[in-house]
Design a protein around this nucleic acid. Structure first.
Ligand SMILES: [Mn+2]
Ligand SMILES: [Mn+2]
Ligand SMILES: [Zn+2]
Ligand SMILES: [Zn+2]
Lengths: 141, 141
DNA sequence: TTTGGAATTGCGAACGGTTTGCAGTATGAT
DNA sequence: ATCATACTGCAAACCGTTCGCAATTCCAAA
């Protein structure tokens, strides 16, 4: 069975190797934002002969052809998610590490207006919110 | 003459050494967003006996006591600016590298609402816009 | 099918920004 | 002035990521 991402890779004309198939599989199955080491860990469970260097190279390749997107969540490493049609941002729960996705047309509109007013055309942007649950916001330290 | 930042450091009760005084001077004079190496370069012009390790340590210290703020502009290194009363974000001109500061109460309000609706209290956030000048947005490649 | 050349892989070494252990030095409270 | 403590410079270690190289794999053409 060829995974969703493997199909995408074929469309893009990428040479499909065993390790790329495994990585495509892992990324198709993921519903979170794994870093390279986590992708490698999951890939190694399917085929242990896969090296971290290949994962690094493949992630970069997939990013270049826009099959996946790099996400910077502020910890030192690069995280990834499947490139999706729906643009969104992330709220990071600093207590639990949970990542909540959100989209906001109003926010995007304001961002556009800010750039336009400054005489700029947007070519990219980044936004993350870090927060703690309202419920236990007063508790602990 | 004790620099603005040196005074702040004294208020915070920091032990003031020669190298800290120089770094405080450099940061007081800066009106941009220098990285550690740039701070070191400027500091070395005042006193060449200052080591990069000390600059790293001092930047971290000043950040901890909230005399300066770390800015992540997407290039690999940490950049810094004086901690100021007025919160703002950055628009990075990807053609020239120029950094334009802006603030937007509307944007902050929307951000607050998003977090609240998700059941979160904001403890931090990050936003940068990358853009190119409208004028020459169509030119070149 | 077999083949051949180009692309990909695994390994380990190198990278760039940052931190750290240590022995020596400076600071500022007494 | 003294002295404990905090700070410094240096070099080595760190961490995520990239890269050079020789060996392997892919796949298009024969
Ligand atoms: Mn996401
Ligand atoms: Mn700024
Ligand atoms: Zn957006
Ligand atoms: Zn803000």
């Amino acid at each position: 069975m060829t995974s969703r991402l493997e199909a995408l890779c074929l469309e893009k004309g990428l040479k499909m190797t065993g390790q790329r198939r495994v990585i495509a599989q892992v990324l198709s199955d993921a519903d979170d934002h794994p870093d390279v080491e986590e992708v490698h860990r999951r890939a190694a469970q399917i085929d242990s002969r896969i090296s971290i260097a290949t994962v690094y190279r493949t992630m970069r390749l997939l990013e270049d052809v826009e099959v996946i997107e790099r996400v910077d969540l502020g910890d030192g490493r690069a995280r990834y998610e499947e490139a999706s049609a729906d643009h969104h941002h992330h709220l990071i729960d600093t207590r639990s590490g949970r990542i909540i996705e959100f989209a906001s047309p109003e926010l995007e509109a304001i961002k556009e207006k800010i750039a336009r007013d400054l005489g700029y055309k947007i070519v990219g942007h980044r936004l993350e919110i870090y927060g703690v649950p309202l419920d236990d916001a007063g508790e602990g330290q």
